[in-house]
Design a protein around this nucleic acid. Structure first.
Lengths: 129, 129
DNA sequence: GCTTAAGCTATACTAAAGTATAGTGATATA
DNA sequence: TATATCACTATACTTTAGTATAGCTTAAGC
């Protein structure tokens, strides 16, 4: 039985569950969080590396989103006192475990695509008969 | 091994994976999709029932989001020719399987909260020593 | 001494998302 | 006859998200 479908039995927990979902959504929110997290899943990166790897992102957005992710405990920011400074961004443990969510999304997304295409084919068949 | 971490071995699939994640995100996008889906997980509902169950939603947004969900194959809309018309909204199979994603989000969200609180406690300890 | 690079920030703007408020047509109820 | 309900739609507005462009400091390379 899924966590969600247990809600009927455990109504008093639903607030906590909704909070947890909102937390997750907030972390992934916006146009650039997923590309950034996706890029960092392959290992720590410097600011300019991320800027180069993520097409069309502006430094303003990269900076803003990285700050957001840092505040939310998803990435760490490490400054080395070279000059000019070197700054490295890395996923925290929480950040790394986000792949469980991404995996669920991949699985659902792929399955959904198949279903939608299947439906369209059925409609096409029905029409062509 | 997770789907994501297989990306290194199966680079050519990454485009498909990213598409799947985007599909999922688009389905859940915005302020009202999750409350609506959450409400429909308990069974089919009429327009006014949803409006009453989801605090602060306006009919404009409810209508807009339901249309969106319908176009994306997440809900079905059934009109009965009573008068005035009765309209029922119900999750499709794809819509129902979304709970796998929500469960992953709940699990991650709860775990993340624990971790963040844990970190704060460690910092507090370190400071108080 | 000029250009390039890193790692950003500032200002001004546009576009997208969401809100507020009112109103529609058919019908049932008081 | 007046009011209420259902399932919305229309118009105008505000708020938030994202873009465009320029600039900062320190230092290395030519």
């Amino acid at each position: 039985m899924s966590t969600i479908s247990q809600l009927d039995q455990v109504k008093k927990c639903s607030g906590e569950f909704i909070l947890a979902i909102n937390d997750t959504m907030n972390v992934l929110n916006g146009k650039w969080k997923l590309p950034i997290i996706g890029s960092l899943l392959y290992g720590k990166k410097r600011f300019k590396e991320l800027e180069r790897e993520i097409p069309k992102i502006t430094p303003r957005m990269l900076s803003k989103e990285l700050k957001d992710l840092e505040v939310n405990g998803i990435v760490t920011r490490t400054v080395y006192n070279t000059s000019p400074v070197t700054v490295e961004y890395e996923l925290t443990e929480s950040g790394n475990t986000l792949n469980t969510v991404l995996d669920a999304m991949i699985a659902w997304g792929l399955q959904h695509r198949k279903m939608v295409i299947g439906k369209k084919e059925k409609v096409a068949e029905a029409v062509s008969v």
